[in-house]
Amino acid sequence: MALEVRNSDLCAYVDQECDDDEKQRIVAALAASPQLTDRLSLWRRNDAALRLALAGLENSAPLQIAEMEATGTRWRAGRPGTAPSGLKVAALAALAGGSGFAALAFVTFVLTAR
């Protein structure tokens, strides 16, 4: 039994669009590949996040102290969510502008340079 699973195969599995034979093949592949299992889990989490975000549900708090500490982000003062709204707006607008890494780098520079 071939265990190679393409992304399109995994999509069909996630969306319950594959037949029983294909489902068995993918289940076997998942059991043999932690990387494939991780990808499946990531896709499912992202799917759920997209549904929640578009449903307008506030499924997350603003920036969390623990999360920032865990990622090595330093704090100058204040609490999560206390950044000036102009900067926040600029950050979100820059991120949404499609300029990707450049925008992220710019926003990071602006915020950390203060």
């Binding site: 996040a49 999360e67 982000t73 704090w75 969510g81 206390t82 950044a83 000036p84 950390t112």
Partner: peptide, 17 residues
């Protein structure tokens, strides 16, 4: 994109009061 936004972007933003 999501990984970039959450871990490459937001986690490097320093919030100032």
């Amino acid at each position: 994109r999501l990984a970039c936004s959450k871990f490459g972007g937001r986690s490097h933003l320093r919030i100032v009061g």
